[in-house]
Every structure is written in C-alpha cells, then in structure tokens.
Amino acid sequence: MCLSVPGKVVEKKGLAADVDVGGTIRKISLKFVPEAKVGEYVLVHTGFAMQIVDEEEANEMMKLLKELTDGPVS
C-alpha cells in the first residue's frame, strides 16, 4: 500500500533535500522529518521523507537474526 525506499540524505537546504538511493538522486521534502541530517538515511515515499532510519535498530535486527538462525533450534 505504500512503497517506501531508504535513501541517504546527501544535501539539505531548509526542508528541501537530495537523497541517494543506490546512486539515484532525487529531490524530496523533509517536511515530516525536519531534524534529518546529511549522512542519515530516510524512508522516502512519493517525494517525501516519512521517517529517519534507525541504524541501531537495523544492526540489532541483523545480530538477532544471526543468533536465531545459528543457535540451537529453541
């Protein structure tokens, strides 16, 4: 119902920003996440950043999955 892709903020001017999704650069609005900083990843939907990607949670997930799949079958 809502495709949203992670893009890296590569340039920011006020609420306007350029994000990079695997080399594709697009102008988007930071209206909904004004605090997003250059270098951070945001989830982009129809030209707007809807949320800032929580990198810690992302790393935590991968750690959990490795434990889940390596460890004995609980």
């Binding site: 892709v5 992670p6 695997g22 999955l65 889940l68």
Partner: peptide, 25 residues
Amino acid sequence: MVRFLSEYRDKDLAQGILKRIEKIS
C-alpha cells in the same frame, strides 16, 4: 547493493528462519 535493502535478501538467513518456522509451528 542498496543500503537498508539488499542486506535483507540474504539466502542463508532466510533459509535459517524458514527452518526455524518449520521447527516450532
């Protein structure tokens, strides 16, 4: 490799979770 996208398409982890699902379900 698109960050926060491609790493979630890992075959070993996917097959690992599927085995875990098979086991407990």
